[in-house]
Amino acid sequence: MTDATLSVAAADLEAAARRRRILNLVVHGLLIAASVLMLYPLLWMLSASLRPEAEIFGSTSIWPSEISFEAYRRGWFGLQESFGVFFRNSFVIAVLSVIGNVMACSLAAYAFARLKFRGRNFWFAIMLGTLMIPYHVTLIPQYVLFLNLGWVDTFLPLVVPKFLAHDAFFIFLMVQFFRGIPRELDEAAMMDGCSPWRIYWKIMLPLSMPVLATAAIFSFLWTWDDFFGPLIYLNDMRNFTVQLGLRSFVDSSSQSDWGGLFAMSTLTLVPVFFFFLFFQRLLIEGIATTGMKR
């Protein structure tokens, strides 16, 4: 090979590398533009909640001329009940839902993944089938049931189903994970005379922390965001969740107090954002491996 052909090859390589660099730059440019577009509405809401009322409209900028927390104070006390009440209610319902889902779903998942019993495949198929059924079809009889139990306008219709593993999606999630735990572990424990209960409690659960955490986080977020359930079951404002509180705020003062509305909207997103910041890896892995809808 002569020097000439070598240098031509080198020039080719260099040109290809340059093309690739330029393409990368273009892709970065597009992605950054898309990111800004995606985040702009959120940032704008945050900034609108911090600026004086007169400045909210007619401005596309996200930099407030002065920062004021006045809208937060107004919004917090904007309804008969303060948002403190709504936050406490949402928090209680979400925490109870997490406990219920993790307990009931892991029990069922352990039975499906590890225990041998007649009818197991049948019930497993039924469980998967329930994932497809839209909740609307059970909605009205459930409502009548809870009404007759005297549970309407309490947290019970929102919480008790979680203790009965009604969110079957989490059973599916946990079965997938439990099946990946080496069988030798529980077989050895079985040989040593461990009961299924002890194996579940001492071996399966401690080894399943990642999936339990994923289920707990998604339970919390879905319950926190739930609007339909509280809308149907909670009537008294003292029992409202944050989502219902916001909705009442929209109805009562949408024309007059946008600042307060934005301030409270921003606050209701804070817990979700917190989970996003700290548990992003679990959230993204959960979605990537199971194809969750959100």
Partner: peptide, 12 residues
């Protein structure tokens, strides 16, 4: 890009 889909269904 994931953030909006996590926040998306809330009333806010």
């Amino acid at each position: 890009f994931y953030l909006p889909s996590l926040l998306g269904t809330s009333v806010a």
